[in-house]
Design a binder for these strands. Sequence first.
DNA 1: CCACGGCCTGATTC
DNA 2: AGAATCAGGCCGT
Length: 284
Amino acid sequence: MLIPVTEPLDLTSTLLSGQAFRWRQDGPWFHCIIFGGIVKLREVTGGVELRCAPQAEGSMVPLLRDYLGLGTDLEQVYETLLDDERLREAIHSYPGMRILRQDPWECLVSFICSSASNIPRITRNIEAMCTTFGRPVELDGLTRHTFPTPHDLAEAGSEALRGLGLGYRAEYVATASETIASGKVDLMPLREDSYEVALGTLTSLAGVGDKVANCVLLFSLDKPEAFPVDVWIERALQDWYLDGTKMSRKNMRRWASNHFGTYAGYANHYLFHDRRLKGRKASA
DNA sequence: CCACGGCCTGATTC
DNA sequence: AGAATCAGGCCGT
């Protein structure tokens, strides 16, 4: 089924820029588990072709439009960022790269797992949790596993998670899972809360500091002003904006939110993507 | 509020 | 070859 898309959308950059960890590319197709179903997407003239199971394709279309962030007016976002020379260049390099609107739970666990790790390992860890504690779903002879629920991971416990290679992050995931499963913290309503309130709630969870919280806020909780500062962003800000001025990461986040404004998160992701593709040494 | 060391682990570098 | 270092940080002191 065709999802008609008239808005700018670069599917490859959007799905593979490091904001989500479960998309796989297979020729022209991308596949993943979304909303509990297996989904295949590919870019075609006029939009995006969709296949999915077990849901009907028709019912998945509005969910995917939402997930892909097509509700956001990118032109308006760009308008606020194009004055900046570095951003202008990055935006021209990857026009149509969007911020996804992911499931907050999966996003939370994924970024807890990301701390002091690397993309291949994070991806392995997440996939291991899914194959071990998730449910298999099949489409066109392809099997993927659903992301485990808070209850699943709380029940699994930290030892089992360590067995999957999470290292010290296993304790964080187990504890955070218990907190969510118990109902002490409810993630979805944070979409309606202010940035500051949601940030405070998230950082009360095990293994969630300022950086991880800002990732969850930006990629799943409707906070486009969120600005996660990781090593890549730290270097980018140092090199291009701060001219060597010493600043803590939390202060960098505050500086950037103030400097880039309402859509600081988009600025963040374009800088991040650009920096990462160019590699560490290439850009001075 | 900031600075610092410790923490799993696997790949890369020296 | 074996030891540091780094990788999309967080926590406690």
